[in-house]
Design a protein around this nucleic acid. Structure first.
Lengths: 194, 194
DNA sequence: AGATGTTGTTAATCTAGTTTAACCTCCTTT
DNA sequence: AAAGGAGGTTAAACTAGATTAACAACATCT
């Protein structure tokens, strides 16, 4: 079953008994989105924390001039949501849109709160997951402050070769905080003369 | 006692019994640093997660050219550490240095792991704290991608008026990702003509 | 009182990255 | 096969912000 992927992922950080596994399974909804569909839309309340079983999604913010800014990507075994909206149940700042047909395992806010009560170990699980996400987020800030666009692109390719292959370059440019034209120039330099 | 500040802060998110309060207290060390002293140094393992009781500290990264980049500030009721180093117990990427005489409540890695076992509710507490920190970190990324330096400075002043008063401007410039000279220009514009 | 260090300002010159616009290459649809 | 659309490239003109350098205003120390 598709939920195996999630259970395996959880078991990397905490141990669940058979009974706990079935409790988790009852509180999770499997859902598939088509390419282009939205898991979350700016302005709506983010209803789910979604674990990606297969496929790929982008989280992005649309500013007042209408420009998109890429907050993060999510591929297999990643989590995606507008976490700020999910935890406060206030309207979302970000959109999450599928770049491919994407299958996810979803926890609603209510389900998750119930799960925390029934299986307190899950607090630990999500603490660890979010701790790692926070550390990665801070690293990205530091890289944006201290590196040139070319260096950031080089690191991105090393760190996420799978994403680099899979998503259009103009989204990577947005993630790096540069225009697609400039990324194109940087790529040309990297391939030829460095 | 100084630890009251920490306990009050914890109680905003979870309830602790008297017994649990005394367990927490036993695992916390109160320590005072002088202005200029380091709570964490780049290259050392980060031994503590520190809750600021009073004072002010900066977390910064020194790049290969020797330039400092401000990762975050911490004032009263904030937490500070190199979290990546703390959780993995690997050498730290960042420095945490006190900008004033600073009193902190510290959890060692070992103490904290013991506390998680003795008081599982603390997993919830730290999950919530870190969730909020992560959301704030992502917002900062988005602002850095989508706003000009002037807008970022205006928001910083609104969001952290206390910090703005307290720390030198060149550190704020570094936090915003600009030079102190450019911040000076932005400030001149904000005060006069906008 | 003078010297030295820390913080902040102003101004000229320079550059990393943006903007605008044209064009190219694949796909997909009709 | 023609027509669109999505993704990518190139190049010229432009700008937000960096760099360099000089100086001013305070503290603090001797």
């Amino acid at each position: 079953m598709e939920i195996e992927s999630l259970l395996k992922y959880i078991s990397r950080h905490i141990d669940l008994s058979e009974q706990e596994v079935s409790i988790v399974s009852e509180h999770v909804k499997i859902r598939e989105y088509l390419k282009g569909q939205f898991i979350v839309q700016q302005g709506d309340v983010c209803k789910y924390e979604s674990y990606v079983i297969s496929g790929c999604a982008k989280t992005f913010f649309v500013d007042q001039e209408g420009n998109e800014h890429l907050v993060m990507f999510a591929i297999e075994n990643w989590w995606t949501a507008d976490l700020g909206s999910f935890i406060t149940q206030q309207p979302a700042d970000y959109n999450v849109q599928c770049l491919e047909k994407t299958k996810v395992a979803q926890f609603s806010h209510e389900s998750l709160e119930q799960l925390y009560v029934k299986i307190p170990k899950l607090e630990r699980f999500f603490r660890i997951i979010i701790q790692n996400a926070f550390v990665a987020s801070q690293k990205r800030i530091v890289r944006n402050l201290s590196l040139t666009a070319k260096e950031r692109y080089r690191i991105f390719r090393e760190q996420y070769p799978d994403i680099e292959q899979r998503v259009p370059q103009y989204l990577i440019a947005s993630y790096l905080g540069i225009t697609k034209q400039f990324l194109s120039k940087v790529r040309a330099e990297l391939l030829t003369g460095n």
